[in-house]
Amino acid sequence: MSLIEVRAPGLLTSVQDLGREGFGPMGVSPSGAADAVALRVGNRLAGNAEGAPGLEMTLLGGTFFFREAAVAALTGSDFASALDDRRVETWNSVEILAGQTLQLGPTRAGARCYLCVRGGIDVKLFLGSASTHLLSGLGGFEGRALRKGDVLKVGRAIEGFRTFRKRNIARRALEKLAPRKVLRVTAGPQSDWFSKEAQKLFYARTYRVTEESNRMGLRLEGAAIASALGGEMISEGVSLGAVQITASGLPIILFVEQQTTGGYPKIANVISADMSSLGQLRPRDEIRFELVEMETARALLVEQEELLASKELILG
């Protein structure tokens, strides 16, 4: 069995896959990778099925000692990484020899970097998924972020461990998948609770991501939106990427560890094709919202899925 020692955990590193859908009636939200596109591509580069469990690192990466040889890939944001003394490029497969150390540093651009290892990170599944739900302490590696001294097991691979092939993502695809700061949204289920002026303000202004943002939600600061109908409603189910307007008038975007129900009116909802962009937002990043039609949102999702499934995505 192949083992990876966590020499330094980084700021917030957890095991993530594509999450556990289907347990809403128990109040359990899906969790899963904050930037699912990066995890999916990372797995393809490493030679895994695209939903294999990998490590999600936040803002500052960890240091990992590989006891055995491995094939891996780093995707998402560039965390200034090195294998022993050699720099490692993101969005490429990389061959790791037994006894080598992969060290990641602080981010150079976005919020999250993914380490995918051939065979995937092997943890006990909780409700069919390896992903960690940090806020409720469920799933993943003991339901928590990694700590110094943890030893991770690598699962069995569909390709041999030693057959290394150099792979990288097509540049054109990478450009198309680049995280956005102008988030496209569709109208939320309570968008008509807000006056024309309030909606105009929401789409015209720039919002700043606050420090209180996490995998549960992104709290924004900026122009307060007046809710014409004065705020609260009967709690109802809430979607991933829902933009709630709280009593203070400030938006919160519900994210992967979202609560399953909520009682704030929702002015908009981030489109599925831009969901991964949310996972790359850092505190103090400035964003804007752009309203699109439902048909546009669907077309963009189809386009992204076709790109992710295409043969031209991965070279080598």
Binding site: E21, G22, F23, G24, P25, P30, I234, S235, E236, G237, V238, S239, L240, T260, T261
Partner: peptide, 14 residues
């Protein structure tokens, strides 16, 4: 259908 979020008098279907 991927998920269902029941509430007081509504059901969200993902």
């Amino acid at each position: 259908v991927r998920n269902l979020h029941p509430a007081y008098c509504s059901l969200l279907i993902k």
